[in-house]
Amino acid sequence: MHLSRPARIALRTAAALGFAVIYVPLLLVLVNSLNADRGFGWPPSSLTFHWWTDAWHSSGARDALWTSVKAGLGATAISLVLGTLIAFAVQRYRFFGREALSFVVVLPIALPGIITGIALNTAFRTVLQPLGVGLGLFTVIVGHATFCIVVVFNNVIARLRRTSGSYEEAAMDLGADTFQVFRDITFPLVRSALLAGGLLAFALSFDEIVVTTFTAGPGVQTLPIWIFSNMARPQQAPVVNVVAAVLILLSVIPIYLAQRLSADTASGGRI
């Protein structure tokens, strides 16, 4: 499409503004984590790694990070297993209620987190507590898995739609039994989709706060919740800022990898 010069300038400015709104605040967080002034005075009078050392020694932040990692890994593991199984069922078999199933699986990601949170909270307290299972890390994991399944499911089913079923028939034709077909053909073909789905699921779980608030017991604090409760304390502000900076750097990695994995598939390459 050919654009006139003024149009080109206007569009470029709009795009630059849009990106600025998103990325300048993030940059500010990174710079402030090095700002020597506790009150984040601007421009920074001098730079220091003092807050980074503080954050490293803050046991609250470290415990919270560890809890978040465990919750994320747990939710990702559950979603990988269930999401993959559902994707295979929906894509490879014809059965009653197939369309409804795909809808029901995808719905939780569109539900407001607060609804999921309240519903799970009530369910856990009614069903699990009488059995002696209180709110804790386990309930957080289950809560996160409800919507993490969606990204795994979507990734795997998109891959299965693009991969012809005749690969599996060809392998069977060449003598491979059901297990060998899965090991040699099916799994290698969906592997990168699983990885991309898993990374996204982990990222989703890692920054979740609403559902977590409702499903975590009093003793369980994930990193987002720790940040939320420490943000208002001036004493802790610089440490929170460092943690935020670390999270920005950390989230770049899975998103970048997930994007590369998906792009790879589009061009026919495989991991």
Binding site: S166, A170, D173, D184, I185, R270
Partner: peptide
Amino acid sequence: TVFQDYALFPH
């Protein structure tokens, strides 16, 4: 079998 779409394993 030789398949219509060949079904060569892409990986």
